[in-house]
Each structure stands twice: as C-alpha cells, then as structure tokens.
Design a protein around this nucleic acid. Sequence first.
RNA 1: GCCGAAGUGGCGGAACUGGCAGACGCGCAGGAUUCAAAAUCCUGUCCUCGCAAGAGGGUGUGGGUUCAAUUCCCACCUUCGGCACCA
Length: 880
Amino acid sequence: MNENREFYNFNEIEKKWQNYWETNKTFAAKDSDKSRPKYYVLDMFPYPSAQGLHVGHPEGYTASDIVARYKRMKGFNVLHPIGWDAFGLPAEQYAVQTGTHPAITTQQNIENMRRQIKSLGFSYDWDRQVDTTDPKYYKWTQWIFLKLFNSYYDDTEQKAKPIAELVKNLQADKYHIGLDNEIVYVAPAHVVTGEPVGARKWFELSKQEQDEFINQHRLAYEDEVAVNWCPELGTVLANEEVIGGVSERGGFAVIRKPMRQWMLRITKYADRLQYDLQFVDWPESIKKLQTDWIGKSIGAEVNFKVDGFDEIITVFTTRPDTLFGATYMVLAPEHPLVDEITTGGQKQAVEDYKKTAQSKSDLDRTDLAKEKTGVFTGAYAINPVNEQKIPIWISDYVLISYGTGAIMSVPAHDDRDFEFAKKFNLPIIPVVEPEDKALAQKVEKGEYCFIGDGIAINSGEFNGLSTAKFKEKITNWLDDNDLGKKAVNYKLRDWLFSRQRYWGEPFPLLHCEDGSIIALDEKDLPLVLPQVESFKPTSNGQPPLAKAENWLNVTLPDGRKAKRETNTMPQWAGSCWYYLRYLDAMNDKAGWSHEKEKYWLPVDLYIGGAEHAVLHLLYSRFWHKLLYDLGYVSTPEPFKKLINQGMILGEDNQKMSKSRGNVVNPDKVITDYGADSMRLYEMFMGPLEATKPWNTNGVEGVHRFLNKLWRAVIDESGSIKDIDADEETQRLLHQTIKKVTGDIENFRFNTAISQMMIFVNHLGKLETKPKKVIEKFLLVLAPFSPHIAEELWARSGNKNTLAYEKWPTYDENLAKEKEIELAVQVLGKIKDKIVVSTDADDEEIKQKALACEKVASAIAGKEIKKIIVIKSRLVNIVTG
RNA sequence: GCCGAAGUGGCGGAACUGGCAGACGCGCAGGAUUCAAAAUCCUGUCCUCGCAAGAGGGUGUGGGUUCAAUUCCCACCUUCGGCACCA
C-alpha cells in the first residue's frame, strides 16, 4: 500500500470548509423564493452561559442540521437560523457579585458560544442571528407586550381584539357592564333572553370606573396576588418555575407572598391551547403534559346558602351527581367569606389556622401535608338538593386559586374528603353504588371510598340513575332552579409575568401619580434599560431599576409626573417569538414583515429539549395565538412538528454536572477527533429521543470510520477509476441510499450511520473503486459529516460545494439482493438454511426446504399439516 | 400516590406491518504487519454442555394467544422522566 498518502487532517479541513461556507454565505436562506418549496428548521436557541456548550446542545443541533442539509439537497428553500436567549439570571447574579454589567458578560459568552457552534459546522444562516438582549430585538418584545396590554378577549368570538374596539362598542351601547364587571354583549332586540339585571351602560360609569373596567379586561394586567417568592433569587417565579416547592433553577426555597405583579391572561386561551394540540405533529407525551397542565375539567357550579346569612357560597364540582352525599363544606383559608361567617367561639381557632396556612411555603404544603388539617368555622351551609344543614370548615387542602376556592365535600366518593371526614369524624353518606357487590357493601358501610361511576342511591328522585345521566339531569335541574349551572374549570392559571430583576426587558409602562397606568406609544420603543450603579435590589426590597432615578421619573407632556415600571419581563418573553424575528431579523420598521411570515410559517421542524414541554412551548403558543387573532401571523400554531432530543449522561451514567466532574467538553472532542466525528458520534449513540450515556471510545469508533473512508478515497496508488461498479458494490450503494434516505425522513440517524459503515467497510476491500459510486456516497454522507464530504467531493474534481447537489436516488431493482438465505423451521425451530433466488416461487421454496437432510430427519414419521412460506424470510413446516 | 417512557450480550444499541434475536459500533481474546510500539488488517466473541460435529436455553418476571412473540393480550417487578391535595 501507499505509505506516503496524506493523512486525514480533520482540523485543517474543517476550518477550511467553515471559512468557505461563511465567506460564500452558502446557507443564506432566500426569502419568498416561490420556485422551491420552503422548509423551516428551528433549534431551541441556547442561553449563552459562561460554561459554554455542553455535549447536549450539539445533539439537537446536529439532528436539525442533518435535516436542513438533506432538505436543501432535496430542493427545498431551507431556513435554518440560530440566536441567543441572552437575558437571564446567571449574568445578573455575576453582576451583583462583581459589578460587571450583564451586557458585557453576555456578549463575551455569546462570542464564545458562537465560536463553539461555528466549530461544529452547522449550516446556519448567520445573517439572521438574534440576541434577545439587543434593544433592536427587545423593542419588538415590548411591542408584543403592548399588544397584550392593549387587547381584550372577546368571549363570544373567542379571540383577542384591540381594547379600542371594546371602548367603541361600549360607547355605542353595544356592550354593557355586568354586575361583576363582565362584558355584557347586548343581544339584538329580537332575542328574548335579554341581559342580566343590574347591567350598566358605559356613560353611567365614572371616569375612574371606566378605567378600572378596561384594566380588568386587558390581556396584560396588574394584580395583587400571592406569588412564589424566592428570597434566594430575590424574585418571584411563575408556577411553572416552581418544582416541588423549590425553584426550578438553583433549587432554592419558595414561599407564598402577596405582591403587586403583572399578569398575562393566558387562561383566556386555555381552551384553544388545548383544542389546537390535535393539529400539531408533536410527541403524544408532550401533548399530554400540556393537556394536563391546562387541566380542563367539566362540571357544575352549585350555590349553597349560608345558614343565617345573606351570603351564598358557590362551589365547583365535577361530580354534581354526588350532591346528596355532600356532608360538609370546606373553604380555602384565604376565602373572602371566612371572616364574615366564622362564629364567635371559633374566631381564635380560625385566625390561628389562617396564620399557619399563610406562612407555609409551597414545600410545606406539599411534602409535609401528609395529614389533613382544618378548623370548623361554626357556620353551616344549606345543601340545595335536600335543605340539609352541613358544617363549613376551612382547610388548606382546598386551594383558593382553583375553582371557587370552596368545595362541597363528599367523603364517600372523594379520597381527600374521605380522609378529612375520617380524621374529624364527619358523616359519610354513600350515594354511588359500584357494580362490584362486595365493594358496594364496603361503600355502604362507609369503609371504602369509591370514586368511580355507578348507580345513584340515597339521592331522592334521582335514585337509580347512572353517573353520566345523573350529572346531566342534576345540572339542568340546578340551572332551572337558579341553584347552579354547568361550569368548566382549568388548572392553568394566569401567567405571572414580572420579575424583580435588572437583566430583562423593561415594561413600556408609566405609573401616574393618580394611580393610572399609561402605556408607551409604539413609536417610543424601545424603552432601553438604564445604566445602574449596582445590580442589587434596593434596601427596601425594590427591584434594581428603582435606583435609576433619571430613568425612573418622567414628566408627561401635560406636566403630570409619572414613574416607570421597575419590574422586568421574565426570560420566556424573548423566547416566545424569536422564531418570528428570524424571518426578518434586520427589519427596523416591524418585528417581521407580513410577506415573509406568510412565506415561512409555520416552523416545519422544531428540535429541542423536553424540559420546555410546558413552559416555553405553552407560552409561545399563547403569544402566537394572540398575534394570530390580531392579524400579525397567519397560522394558528407556530410549530408544526416537534421532536425532543434526549439527555446525554456522563460516562458514569449520571447526569453531567460540574460537581460530579463528568462533564464532557465539546471543544476537546473537536480538537481530538474533529467536528465531523463529534456530529457523527452524537447521532450514532442511539435514538435521538433517548437518554444515553457518553462514551469516548464510541467517538473513536466513528472517527475510525471516517479515517477508513479517507484512506479508501485518498489513495495515490490509483485504485479509484471511472469504471462501472460491480454488482455487489452497486447493490450496496443503492441499499445505502435507500436506508439513509428513509432514516433521515424518520429521524433515525443511528441506523443510517450503521448502513454507511457497512458501505465503507465494503469499499475498503475493493481493489479498484468506482469513482461515481464514491461520489454518490459522499452526497449521502454530507448531511452527517459535511466537512470531510466537501473535501473529498472537491478532491474528486468538483468545483462547487455539494450543499445544493441533488440528493442521490436509488433504484429499487438495483438495491434488491439476487439470492437470499431462508431459515427452514420445523414447528418454529430452525433446522437448516436454504439459499434461493429472490424471485423463486412458493412451490420451489417448499421443495427445496423439504429436500434438506436435517429437515427430513426432523419430520421423519410425522404428518405435514402445512408449510408456511414467508418470502425473503423463512419457511416453517408444521407437523401433526 | 397519579401520569408517561423504557427494560435485549461485558457496554451503546439493531430487528420494517408477528417471521432467522444480537446489525453497526465499543470492549475483549487470538493472529498478521513491526526491531518495538502506535496505526492498520484478519479471525473469534449471547449463555450452558461438548475436542468437534452438534444439542439445549435465551430479549425484566409469571402466564396467555399463535405454525411463529423483543413485537400482541393479562398480571407483576425495576429504572428513568413529569405532576403534587386541581374538587
């Protein structure tokens, strides 16, 4: 062999092609190119951390890059962008410690990470980079916030509309204002139902009442709410960011604390967010996670009179059919009626209980709440179905934030109520009889809590009804008697949207001295973050922005004084819409142009980690739907297909972490083995979605494969000739094209690589190697390991990049084997093997199988019942 | 506790719609090449018995359906991920 042949210098080759792609803008996407179909491949953009990339990032990025490169060769106009989700706590915490402005740290980190990402040779259109901390970017984040602030949700049409329209309709008397400040859509004269008693007209309200009404209908609103306060992080967290009572980031304790906060009315979209999931091609598990998070449940609201008071307590239940079994009622400790109805003797006990409940953190409420606690208020409610007096208790197992903050307790048919009733000796009345007789007896005696469906008992005129029928009847009955109505509830809560931080988007809002809130005009955006001396909160606990006095205090054109909002937006804000900015990253007139949005959306493929299943993916769907309602985007959903890449564990099978010392540094892998090997290994490890451990020896394995390819092609001894391939080589090539094509389409990159390995193993054994076959193979390899493919392609005499070469096609006939080996079984046990031609018929195969010596001895003396021939697989002889 | 995903050689994994379990890679063993090593190439490598030919067992466990089960059904065990009293 030739000892002087050039070795596979991956470092040099990779740098060369990365420069080539960059200077030639090889991967620039053409906007609105009607001559080709479009394909938008999106990666979840990274947070530019000081640690830089870890090996988990390139996994998803390689997968999407393979698809992007493949689609280009398939003739698609591919948009494949990347950017930086750059607001966030770490840079700010570093700023608090060192005084370095987070913008500086952020830029350094971006630069490092960009270098790392570029060193992997991904085919991004770098001219579309976005950086969420760039005022040119967050100008539009603020712009979207203004859209939320200046919109309301029209319940009749189920869509968001500008507040201005609401005001117009109110002024025109088309809408009135209900008792609970709800919008009353005035019915045309011929509709008999009429409007609720007590509805007021717009002009009957004072200016202040009008403002208040409007504010209550904005999709972004201010509210005093009990929030998840994390003292350690010095900020509030959204429910989604609190896991098991501690912060998702850092794992710090979280306590409940009432605070003034900005909220987004995502709950208005709950139904659509759930319903539209059926139209996206996402993993079922993710859809389920979102469905559960939204938590829609259908039931009834039932009104209970409070004995001796004028008050009514409304409860929500999914089991109105168990009303006759309601033996007591429980209010959340925070329920507004608690103080009013509590009797003298119980005052102290109730007060004490409320105090302890309030001071409990979420952690205490979940982990330590093994035993039910509660206090009797001394008051009684009247069960509307049978006029029974039932005691009213308070307990923290009832949440103020769900339903009405009050429940009717049916201990015979609800686990929690059962537990509570047992502990406090409250009566248990069975009202649903299970089908199982033994079970029914236990339920009868109050020994067993049955939560399933069955037949109604102890329920007066409703006895004998099935659960489903009963629900329907009683709901109608309640409605007819004005005692309740059908109701739908969601677990989903409004999105807590403000953070007490510096490093986030400022809210484009002003608080006037009279308490009114003014939104900035769109033309005054962006509202840029001010310089501050220190990034710590103020001594009295105000956010850092409160210290920027020049920025904070504003005099309005009319001379009034106002202060800016000092909270900032959460990190999710910027990531909610970045996929839109990529379409038109340089546009300074709009966040994106309508034309580009219509061309590129929706995102065809979105790859990222499953940790964003509810947070990011729910929030961005919400924003997208708002923009859809207002006419800024033309698809109801942003992401058509979603794939989650799995986690990569350390070599010790543990989660990679600094403290375990098992973190793999991608830079080192690239230096040692090259980006092509790195990419190939990440894909070869196993299925994309699976969690799998890193193994450096495995990197060596794929590196060997590339080396083998290199040696097969770079061969000065002249073994490569422009000749026709022999039959076997031809067949293997076509099999490889077929397998790789199918595997890319189905995101099975690991098996595609196996097939390419088989091909190269064969190639290495050939004395003379046909040039055309090698070239076709290089095209197939290119999406996986683009640098070596480009280099060998060029050395083969091609002038242009292979990035836009036509993807090779395969010929089914050429891919087919001529002869195949079939297993011959007797009663399912393999006895022998036969070789037949691919187009042999069943009869021929049967004869050949029966002719086997081993078969003959196995079936000797037995009757053959039937012979099963599975073409290209096996023959099974069934004997009697 | 509830929901979801998954359990296959020493390891990562493969097996299309029920059709030869272990492709491909790692590791390991032996050999070739070499002064030697690295690199490379060849051979072997699920387990048990056997010198061998061969025989038997085998996809978390137990059962079932089928000519045939990693694949379908029932029960259970384990691991990982998510949720946390949502009435």
